[in-house]
Measured scan of single mutants.
Amino acid sequence: TTIHVGDLTLKYDNPKKAYEIAKKLAKKYNLTVTIKNGKITVT
């Protein structure tokens, strides 16, 4: 599972963990989490 945050690309083997991290990042920086085709993007 890949999380895209701006220019950063973070890879995680565990999709659930990746989603949790994405949610935390989104909350911290007041951003939105988008999931599309298995890719998690924080914008």
Rank of each mutant, 00 (worst) to 15 (best):
T1G: 09
T1A: 12
T1F: 13
T2D: 04
T2P: 04
T2M: 09
T2L: 09
T2A: 07
T2E: 11
I3C: 08
I3F: 02
I3D: 02
H4N: 09
H4W: 08
V5T: 01
V5S: 03
V5C: 14
G6Q: 04
G6R: 02
D7T: 10
D7F: 10
D7N: 15
D7C: 15
D7G: 13
D7Q: 12
L8Y: 07
L8N: 03
L8I: 12
L8T: 04
T9M: 12
T9K: 13
T9D: 10
T9Y: 09
T9F: 11
T9I: 15
L10I: 13
L10G: 04
L10K: 06
L10P: 05
L10W: 04
L10A: 03
L10R: 05
Y12Q: 03
Y12P: 04
Y12E: 04
Y12D: 03
Y12N: 03
D13A: 09
D13L: 07
D13Y: 06
N14S: 14
N14T: 13
P15Y: 15
P15A: 14
P15V: 13
P15L: 14
P15H: 10
K16W: 12
K16D: 13
K16S: 11
K16G: 10
K17A: 10
K17M: 14
K17F: 12
A18M: 03
A18S: 02
A18G: 03
A18H: 01
A18I: 04
Y19M: 15
Y19W: 14
Y19N: 05
Y19H: 10
Y19C: 03
Y19T: 05
E20D: 10
I21L: 09
I21Q: 06
I21T: 08
I21D: 05
A22T: 03
A22R: 00
A22N: 00
A22M: 07
K23C: 10
K23E: 12
K23Y: 12
K24D: 06
K24N: 09
K24W: 15
K24L: 12
A26K: 03
A26G: 06
K27D: 12
K27N: 08
K27I: 10
K27Y: 07
K28C: 08
K28M: 12
K28P: 00
K28I: 11
K28R: 11
Y29L: 05
Y29F: 11
Y29I: 02
Y29G: 03
Y29W: 08
Y29H: 09
N30P: 01
N30H: 11
N30C: 07
N30D: 09
L31S: 03
L31P: 00
L31H: 02
T32M: 11
T32F: 08
T32L: 10
V33A: 03
V33G: 00
T34K: 10
T34M: 11
T34C: 07
T34E: 10
T34H: 12
I35Q: 05
I35D: 03
I35E: 06
I35W: 05
I35C: 08
K36P: 01
K36R: 12
K36Y: 09
K36G: 13
K36F: 09
N37K: 09
N37M: 10
N37I: 10
N37L: 10
G38I: 03
G38A: 07
G38R: 07
K39M: 15
K39W: 12
I40S: 00
I40R: 01
I40K: 00
I40F: 04
T41M: 14
T41E: 10
T41D: 06
T41I: 14
V42P: 00
V42R: 00
V42Q: 00
V42S: 00
V42F: 06
V42H: 01
T43Y: 10
T43E: 12
T43S: 14
T43N: 09
